[in-house]
């Protein structure tokens, strides 16, 4: 068991843990690449929030959705 300053112990706990990983290093690489693709590419370029992008406040969003929901005239639902 590591003894001494709690912060140092906390740091060393993770530091030694990551250092001694074998298969884990490859997994962390995959996690980082995956998170990069998700948040830096998909989220920013392909998955912007539709209502946030179009409207600046909740009132406008509510009005838009009510407008959408109350005019279901020609929905192709057959």
């Amino acid at each position: 068991m590591i003894k001494g300053n709690p912060l140092k112990r906390f740091f060393l706990f993770y530091y030694d843990g990551f250092k001694s990983m074998t298969v884990g290093k490859r997994l962390w690489t995959i996690i980082i690449i995956k998170l990069f693709i998700m948040f830096a590419i998909l989220k920013i370029f392909f998955f912007q929030d539709f209502l946030d992008k179009k409207f600046s406040n909740d009132k406008e969003k509510a009005d838009y959705v009510i407008e959408q929901l109350t005019n279901p005239k020609n929905i192709n639902n057959d």
């Binding site: 998909l42 929030d49 509510a62 959705v65 959408q68």
Partner: peptide, 27 residues
């Protein structure tokens, strides 16, 4: 650990889709 690492955060995509593709539903 392998399964957890590869699978972690894959569910976040669903939340992206809620906001982008399913905005009426999300609201």
């Amino acid at each position: 650990g392998i399964n957890f690492a590869i699978g972690v955060a894959t569910g976040i995509i669903l939340e992206f889709e809620f906001g982008t593709n399913w905005s009426n539903y999300s609201w």
